[in-house]
Every structure is written in structure tokens, then in C-alpha cells.
Design a protein around this nucleic acid. Structure first.
Lengths: 287, 287
DNA sequence: CGGATAAAGAAAATAATTTGCAGAATGGGT
DNA sequence: ACCCATTCTGCAAATTATTTTCTTTATCCG
């Protein structure tokens, strides 16, 4: 658990002085990580012992433990995430994108609904056939990645980004199958229609989307992804990266659930590739 | 600059004692971030002052400054990257995947060849037509993402994961066009053939792959991606995420180079989507 | 209004870190 | 091989930071 999460939980129970310390953490992170206990106490207008007590309350051994925890939080929050990157220099652009991607992963991790993920993994592992839906470029990529990850485990899966096909597949699917759909915005009306059709046919549906959105409501089960989207129109969505990581998590869990089968399938795929290429065993499973 | 980068640079100039300290940092990061100067000195068999001097040499004000810098490095190196995750528990799996993804981004950032990226962006921005190639699941996804990112900028681009098509496209392409190819392993023999054909037709090629690999050698220009690959067969490649981030960086740079055109195209796409959906302006450009 | 309880600071105690200095080691150059 | 200059290193002292202890102050509840 990271400090900021703990802070969130304890927030209400903090005293006046402790709240002043908390404010400094939130507003002047940069100062806080570099300050000594005396400086921090001074800025918060409290005595050093109060700071020590504050640290303990947040679950740290000591002030220095607290500082380390603080410094280690991958939360980059306001500090690096200026809406605009510093410049159009290659180095700055690179740093901006990578920082945002890392932050998206961090935010994803914090907001993960583990129970929902487990339920989804259980469902997928048991499915006789899986249909992965997604449209609009980003979600179609995710649907494709579902296929890319899950077929390796020996599961039967197909992906489609074509609404007409999705409707037909939803109609063709059976109750022992599963339809997974990805929608970043949650407002993909066509996916809502496909899910509604599936529901009528008693085919279970899992949505990877914003919680509470139309798509989420139309699905039997939702794995929520609630992340803020950056606002620079040139900046591709780091949300995409969070989705992929989430998908990897689900795929890994599914893998554990179908383990014996997966080992065999992977070995076969690998062997196939090795024979096909030039026998270098180090190469990837799929390029 | 982060501590580990500085450490790399200074490495040669370190004395015996300082090297012992460096070894501890590298091998037992977890211990190092939590240790006091005395504990660290003890473990390295040196005196505390030596540790202080070591910190100064690495550009830090003091030992505590050093500790903060250390704790802030996104380098997770060996510390979380145990070959096997702690357990098959959902939470552990999630943490493992996210940590590995963040680390892949960090390693990518460190190894970026900015000059190569710029050259690639320049080339792409000027291309009359772009062909994006990639096969094998992961790279085909990357090729698709090239299209997904670049068409929005008003560029003409198509993606293909089909070798026969790639060969035909390479033959059809003209010298003012560009072929970009992605290969995680760098050993995609078919891509090598396509690139060789392109070279004969004087069509410029850009490879996103491991430097020095056959694919890199067959290309006119390489944007190197040299990352270690994890070895748990169930764990999907976090390399994928690094590739996407790299692609985003390139796409952003291309966007700046074709800015006026891109703004117009994006506005048109956005308008199209808004009209098509339900008028919520906050929704994404593509789902 | 009193008494219990928690909060906060002062001062002392402790622990950690840095500085100054002197001895030891190292590495050229005779 | 030896010497001088330089760098390295640890010791002890000085400084600084942090925590503990104890006391005062504030707050809440009956």
C-alpha cells in the first residue's frame, strides 16, 4: 500500500496539525520529499514530534521510513503531468509520454477491482468459446489482443471489430460461451446493442469499460477501468497501455486456471515457430 | 538524471570501497533504500564517511538526499522482478504485471535512441504513403497501431500482417513512400525478404526492432528497441507495452511535424464521432 | 463545570550524519 | 625498487536530526 492511499483512508481521523502536514504532502510533494523533519514541521507550523506521530499513524516505522515510502510512490500526480509537455523536443516528448504511461499504470493499479477481475478470469477460463469485441481503433486493438493472448492458452477465441459481425456472432453464440467487449468511452452504442442481443440469448457478457457507462450497464459483468484521459489532442491515450496491462492480468489469471492445457499449447506454438525460423530457442512466442 | 545512470557513468572511477557500496545498491536495492548510513556502511564493510563521500560523488547533497534520489528511481531492477511472481493470487499477479510494465517503460526510456527516433519521425512525416508491416500477433498489433495513430494525422497509411501482401506492397511502393516494420525478435525472415525487395525498389524502410538483428540489418533505418524479455511463459511480454510507448513517441513527433494538417483531420474525425454518437464532447477520438 | 482523553510542544536523550584530520594505500615517475 | 604526490579511508569529534519522555493545553462528554 502506498502512502497516498493510506492518507486517503486516514484523512478523516487526522487532527488539525496532522492535516496541515497532509496538505503539504499533497500540495508540495517536491518540498516534502526533500525536507528534513524539522523543515517539514516548520512549514506545517507544528513541532517535529507531531510529524513523527503523523508518520507512525500512516503506518511507517519512523520519519525516514516515511520519506522513503513517500519517495517511492510511483504517483507522479501533478508534479510531472503538466497538461502540455515542456517542449516539442524529442527528449521532452519521450519523457512526457513515458511518464504519462507509467502514471496510467499506477492509476490502474490503484483502481483495480480484483474481485471483478477474478470473476472475469473464472468465466473466461470456463468458456467453450470466446468472442472478443471492440471497435474504433483502440478497442479493436484490445479485442485483437484478447485473441492474441488467449488463443495461446488453448482457448477458442475470435475477435471482431465489425459491428455487423458482432451482431451475428452474438446471435450465434451459446450460453456456455462468453462475449468480452472493450470500450474506452463506454458509449459504444453498437456494442450496447450487441450485448443486449446476447443477454436475450442468455450468452454471458463481460465489459472492460468505464463503470456505470451504457456499455457497463448492458453487460452481465464489468471489469471497470476508470482513468482520466489526458487532454492534449496530439497525445495518444496512455489509457491504451493501462487496458493492455489489465488484459495481461486477466490473461495471466486465466492461464493459471487452465494451466495444463496452456503449457501444452504454448509448447506446440513455440516448437512450430522454432522449426519455422532458424532454431534459435530464445526467440519470442510470436513476433 | 537518475542515480543508476550516474552510477553507470562513474563506475570506472570508483574506488574499491565505493564499488562495494555500489554492489549493494545493485544487488540489494531493498536493503539499500531502507538502511541507515551506518547499516549500509556496515554491510559494505566501510565507514560511514565513505558512504557520505560516495553519495557526494554521485551528485547528491547528502546521504539523505541520496536516499530520496534512490527511492525515487523508477528502476525496479531485480527487486520486484523475481522470475516467478509471489503467488497466483490476483493481487500479486496484478502487481507483478504492472511493475514489469512500468519497468519496461523505464528501461525503454533509458535506452531510447533519440536521434534515430527523430530521423524516423522526419521520414514518416514526409512520406507520401506509409506501409506498416508486422506479423506474429504482437508485431501485427504494433503495425495496426501505427495505422491507428498515424491516419489521424492525415497521413496515408495501411497496415498488413500478411507476408504475401507485404511482398506485393513492397513491390508496389515508390521511393517517396516509407515502409515501417516491427519485429520484436528481429528474426522475422519474411520481413527481411520484404525489406530486401523494398531496398531494390529504392523504397526507404524503417525497422522497429532489436539493433543488430537481421531485420535491423535489412532496413535502411532502425529505431532500436533492446529490452530483456521476461522468462515466465505465462507472462505476456511487457515489451509490447514499451513498443506502444515508443510508437506513441514517434507518432507525437510526427504530429508536430504535420501539425496544421493534423489539427484539421482530428477535428473532422472528432466531429464525425460526435455526430455519430450522442453528442458528448468528452468522448475519445475513437473508442 | 469537572474529569477523562487526546493532542501538541519543550526539553532531554538518543541516534544518525558530517567534518576535520591523520594514517594508509595507490600510482606514476625516476 | 624507491619516493613523492595524490587519493582513499577510518577514527573521533562536532554537528545535526530524530525520537522519547514528560508536561501543558485543548477538547469532548456527562
Amino acid at each position: 500500500m502506498d502512502i497516498f492511499a493510506t492518507l486517503q483512508e486516514e484523512k478523516g481521523r487526522l487532527s488539525q496539525s496532522e492535516n496541515r502536514i497532509a496538505d503539504i504532502l499533497l500540495n508540495d510533494f517536491e518540498f516534502a520529499v526533500n525536507a528534513s523533519i524539522i523543515e517539514l514541521a516548520g512549514k506545517a507550523d507544528v513541532s517535529p514530534p507531531t510529524v513523527t506521530r503523523f508518520c507512525r499513524r500512516l503506518g511507517c516505522e519512523s520519519f525516514s521510513d516515511f520519506k522513503v515510502q513517500l519517495a517511492r510512490t510511483p504517483y507522479v500526480g501533478m508534479r510531472y503531468l503538466k497538461p502540455e509537455p515542456k517542449s516539442q523536443e524529442t527528449g521532452d516528448v519521450a519523457q512526457d509520454i513515458i511518464t504519462k504511461a507509467q502514471n496510467a499504470l499506477f492509476l490502474l493499479h490503484r483502481s483495480l477491482d480484483l474481485a471483478a477481475i477474478e470473476r472475469a478470469a473464472d468465466r473466461l477460463a470456463q468458456a467453450e468459446m470466446i468472442y472478443a469485441f471492440g471497435s474504433g481503433g483502440n478497442s479493436s486493438m484490445i479485442a485483437g489482443e484478447f485473441q492474441n493472448r488467449l488463443f495461446r492458452l488453448g482457448l477458442r477465441i475470435t475477435a471482431s471489430s465489425d459491428h455487423s459481425m458482432q451482431m451475428m456472432m452474438a446471435a450465434a453464440a451459446r450460453p456456455a460461451d462468453v462475449i468480452v467487449g472493450s470500450s474506452f468511452s463506454g458509449r459504444n452504442a453498437e456494442m450496447v446493442r450487441a450485448f443486449t442481443l446476447a443477454r436475450e440469448a442468455k450468452v454471458p457478457t463481460i465489459a472492460f469499460t468505464q463503470s456505470g457507462s451504457p456499455v457497463a450497464q448492458a453487460a452481465d459483468m464489468t471489469v471497470p477501468v476508470d482513468l482520466p484521459e489526458g487532454n492534449n489532442i496530439y497525445r495518444p491515450t496512455s489509457t491504451r497501455i493501462a487496458y493492455i496491462a489489465l488484459l495481461d492480468i486477466v490473461a495471466s489469471l486465466v492461464a493459471y486456471r487452465v494451466q495444463p492445457q496452456a503449457t501444452v499449447t504454448l509448447r506446440r506454438i513455440k516448437q512450430q515457430l522454432v522449426v519455422h525460423r532458424d532454431g534459435d530457442d530464445r526467440q519470442l512466442l510470436g513476433d
